[in-house]
Write a protein that binds this DNA or RNA. Structure first.
Lengths: 341, 341
DNA sequence: GAGTCGCCCCAAAGCGCTTTGGACTGAGTT
DNA sequence: AACTCAGTCCAAAGCGCTTTGGGGCGACTC
């Protein structure tokens, strides 16, 4: 069933039917009602390709996910982020298309997306420090919003991010207040901007108390469970082991915990662990009784906000860049305690 | 840059340029080379909407993900599955679109997808027992492949699944061979077909040894970490606690482990744990030294296979349904041992 | 009663591509 | 010399929609 058939069936022109359906004022409410009725009765849906051709709009948003920065890893943040974004798209009648990109052809991917023209805007995932994609996309002239930020990018751009520096400064302060002096940082890959910022927050807090950071206590890798395990295991075996771990992901924190317990120590008593928690739907830290003390920042919410922001920019590309900084909450759990003396 | 401009620039007709680019034999190889050269020089990409309008094909595959069967949970399997599928799509020039559906409007979602016509085929995620979507989609006449299966569906259909029944029968047998008699099953939601099959495998194995299943040792919920924790905790507090846990997901198994250790027991010695492992990229069970004994079935591989199968069906919708059953490997880890006497 | 103005509606021109149905060569056949 | 035929190319229709630029008509003004 297409427009022409529907129009014929109603004894109206295609123009009128189209206008009735799209809410134009040139059509009487009576006709509009009649048209609407017939449309749903016939199960009519306008063909989005034809509509897109005519309007120049695709009614779709593209998400480009680097298949992680180094390996074959699928970023676990991604699932919940798009779950949030998708609510927004659904309400606005937008579709969502996915492109996984294996790093190499990054810029090319975006160029192709633009040339094909089947998305109206792009969400950029996993920004790195000085991420070249951002000036590139600005030059491309396609609306985009970054989930996260990139440092040292000359141009202004739109982003939704959490306050990584602030959260990790506060988390480190919290551990320092508990008397910890040797605090390990198990960060994400530090080419990733969020990891870079977290490290900055951590270093700031140490410096403010005059504590020199120990390179042996700082790592930055992809935030898997095994990474947390191995790193913690190695650090606990040092001559001067840390008394606390600051971890960038709940997933890695689970590995840290495994290492701690395997060493015959008790988390929260012998060794403290404070982790960032992206609030994945399947990996709750416990609502009533959180296992880990954590900096909490729901990634799903970030997805919703980023999608809304992008849709605004698609509607009016001339809008000045918009930014949104989310503050993480510091949630008290059972994994932290005073430094043992 | 569009076809017309490119044709004008080359002094050829649109027809010829189109045919040259699409590999039709009616054009000389010399012209074809010239056209190709000009196209890439100009950065020309055919507009997929226009092409879709003309051909009736969308060159896109739709993935419909029920936002879990009950809650707001995003299925963690999904990320790695599409990472696998996306390789296939990329190579074939297909795009991937995502629709998260909140259960309620399931059928409607598919109908809309069909009516809009911007996908050529659909991957169905998270099939439930007697899933109504399957006969519905068969009726719709849109190619689809199910990731998983649905029991008691009258019609034949295409699927890629792992042998859930076999894997859990074997896993249960393995635990029985170690002398365990009270084996708990922490399953996924049992309206989900995969969970139903796993339970069948578990019950089969028990029955074969004449052991009556104990309802107090069987649960089926969404496979989060807290679920594993709470369920294990409750069961360990029973008068007759289990000596082994059979768990449907590594994520929940992590929770089980937490409960075991919190009870002052040692996993692998006092209590055995055997889990299914979907081989998420961020949650490795350890390659060299697996923590958990597990039935392993890479979900990424399943994604690739399902996508390939779907693309075949899109190319030739008359193809008889195709199915692919993957066997899980049983990986020995440190989490299992003989039943304590 | 002529002119003006809203209100409804329509015909037709695109949007950028593919594909049908030829047309025009020059070489090979008879 | 007329005919066929493969090899190249083209004009134009059509995919299903939106949107421009009117057109008709009753209700107001003056």
């Amino acid at each position: 069933m297409n427009l022409r058939q529907l129009a014929a069936q109603l004894g109206l022109s295609q123009t009128t039917v189209s206008r009735a359906l799209n809410g134009y004022p040139e059509v009487s409410e009576a006709t509009r009602a009649r048209v609407r009725g017939a449309a749903i009765a016939a199960g009519y849906m306008p063909n989005p390709r034809a509509r897109g051709l005519a309007t120049g709009r695709a009614m779709a948003i593209g998400h480009v996910i680097p298949t992680s920065t180094s390996h074959e890893m699928m970023n676990p943040v991604f699932g919940d982020f798009i779950a949030g974004a998708s609510e927004t798209y659904l309400a606005a009648g937008y579709d969502m298309t996915l492109t996984l990109s294996g790093d190499a052809d990054e810029a090319d991917n975006y160029r192709r997306l633009k040339a094909k023209g089947n998305v109206d805007g792009i969400i950029v995932h996993g920004p790195r420090i000085e991420d070249g994609r951002i000036p590139f996309l600005t030059g491309l002239g396609m609306p985009f919003v970054v989930h996260g930020r990139a440092s040292n990018v000359g141009v202004p751009y739109s982003w939704v991010d959490m306050n990584n520096t602030g959260a990790f400064r506060r988390a480190t302060d919290f551990l320092l207040d508990l008397g910890h002096r040797r605090i390990a940082l198990l960060n994400g890959l530090e080419v990733m901007d969020f990891a870079h910022r977290r490290r900055t927050g951590y270093l700031d807090a140490l410096q403010a108390r005059g504590i020199a950071p120990d390179p042996a206590l700082m790592r930055g890798e992809e935030m898997t469970e095994p990474y947390g395990y191995r790193a913690a295991r190695a650090m606990l075996a040092l001559d001067a082991p840390p008394s606390a771990f600051l971890v960038s992901s709940l997933i890695s924190a689970i590995g840290v915990r495994r290492a701690i317990e395997q060493s015959g120590l008790t988390m929260g008593r012998d060794i403290s662990v404070l982790t960032h928690d992206d609030d994945f739907s399947y990996l709750s830290n416990g609502r009533d009784l959180p296992l880990f003390t954590a900096t909490l920042s729901p990634v799903r919410e970030a997805g919703r906000l980023a999608a809304e922001m992008l849709l605004r920019r698609v509607a009016d590309p001339a809008l000045p860049p918009e930014t949104r900084l989310l503050e993480a909450q510091l949630i008290l759990g059972a994994s932290t305690g005073p430094a043992p003396s």
